[in-house]
Amino acid sequence: MAARKNFMGYVFTAPAIILMLVILLAPVFIAATLSFTDYSLGNSSFNWVGLENYLKMFSRSTYVKMITASVTYVFIVVPGSIVLGLGAALLIHSLRRFGDIYKTIYFLPVMASLLAMAIVWEFTLHPTIGIINKTLASGCGNFPEIFFSLGWLPFVDGSSSWYSTCCREGFPLWFGDKAYTMATICFIGIWQSFGFNMVLYLAGLTSIPRELYQAAEMDGAVKGWDRFKLVTWPMLGPTTVFVVTISTIRSFQVFDTVEAITRGGPVKSTYVMMYAIYEKAIKHNMVGMGSAIVVVFLAFVLLLTFTQRYLVERRVHYS
């Protein structure tokens, strides 16, 4: 009987083991190997080029711009979506009624195809027919311009404000002007992902025992901010570690918005890593270079996850 159970263990795990080896582990080795070559699909042979691909990545301006774009995106979207996610969760959790409605609404973008919504956003922010620029322009010379340019404050010259300048010179090309494009792409990223973080934080908040708040109150933490600092934030520690990791990994993988709207432009300001892999390795068939990007990318992801695991292990005693 025991021997038979033993045998079934191998039968049941074998398909999974084989697929893990072929689909997940072999590609990592293939990418690592190809990153030292100048391989292209369709060529029968290739040359070993040593570290050349990696050196290019840190010296050629295209790849430096690629890393800058990816890192910028991550550094804006991760904090943005976490702050908004946590803020929304705290507000909703403290509501007496109707909290579920907001939760549903904020979660909608997580469900929707990002590609479809990217196209809708592009349209919404279209310079001539987009609803945003039309609405902004209709405020020129009216109350909104006066209000937002702060011209109603004493000693403030509103005419040099952002809004008034735009009223004279036209509202931004959100996806055509280098000064705005990255910010707009990040905005869509935050819009899409903060609901996911909110849901995780809400789960974290409901698991905090109420007694802790009562204890904190007895210790003199009466104000909301004190209670947040003393109880909520530390108790949300494990959630935060997870949210930071998963948001970072996902942000590094941004592709849909960039491919559909900007194609890495203008002047490579949104040339993120996933798009670079797609363009260089798959469209231009520079597989060697693409593989080097894959390896660096994977190294980023592994480093992050190991850091997360380490932090979680250290914090286990909290829960």
Partner: peptide
Amino acid sequence: SMVMFCLLIPVHTIALPIYIM
């Protein structure tokens, strides 16, 4: 532990070698 290790690999990141295969 193999499963746990593979959990670290997002499939999108290794799309290129899979595509070549």
